[in-house]
């Protein structure tokens, strides 16, 4: 328990330090940038669902709580839902492109902080890392996807072995 709280204290202070430095640097540049100079996407809304400091420290607890409410009880309000977080925070970068969590630039809202804090997050192994509107019709259409995959590949794709009913 002791080592756990010590670890938490360290992480919190690291986050605090980081947020202070990022705050300081953002005063001198246009778009907000983190300690490494990476652009942090500006969220769509004006105010987060909780105060920023609270979210920095506790967002994972809110998400964990909401995930159980959604899965077991079917409560699908936007408050603290990972889909709603992404809808607001995963905004396009300076070039107008929707950034993805695994992009090397670490411009994804979650990645921009987690990379600096060196905390691995695996939410997006399963969950969508971009907002609902960033999905095209092709994302919902397996056949179209297959065609696109084949069009952009010069070697035989694994999907070519599919059996058509």
């Amino acid at each position: 328990m002791k080592s756990l709280s010590l670890k938490r204290l360290l992480v919190t202070s690291a986050l605090l330090l980081w947020s202070l430095t990022s705050l300081a640097s953002s005063q001198f540049t246009g778009p907000s940038r983190d300690a490494n100079g990476n652009v942090v996407p500006t969220p769509k809304g004006e105010q987060c669902v909780e105060p920023t400091a609270d979210m920095r420290a506790n967002h994972m607890k809110y998400l964990l709580h909401k995930r159980d409410l959604t899965m077991y009880d079917g409560i699908r309000t936007k408050q603290h839902s990972i889909v709603a977080c992404i809808d607001c925070h995963a905004t396009p970068n300076e070039d107008g492109k929707i950034v993805r969590i695994h992009d090397d630039s670490n411009q994804h809202f979650c990645a921009s902080c987690h990379a600096v804090a060196s905390v691995k997050l695996d939410c997006f192994e399963c969950h969508a890392d971009r907002p609902v509107e960033a999905f095209s019709d092709a994302d919902y259409d397996p056949v179209q996807q297959l065609d696109e995959a084949l069009a952009h590949s010069d070697k035989p794709h694994a999907l070519m072995n599919r059996k058509v009913q």
């Binding site: 259409d141 397996p142 996807q145 297959l146 072995n161 599919r162």
Partner: peptide, 18 residues
């Protein structure tokens, strides 16, 4: 197999290895 295609489309199930 309209039901199968619709389910795959709805949930993003894609063919990978057959």
């Amino acid at each position: 197999s309209d039901c199968v295609s619709a389910c795959n489309k709805e949930h993003g199930l894609r063919e990978i290895h057959g």
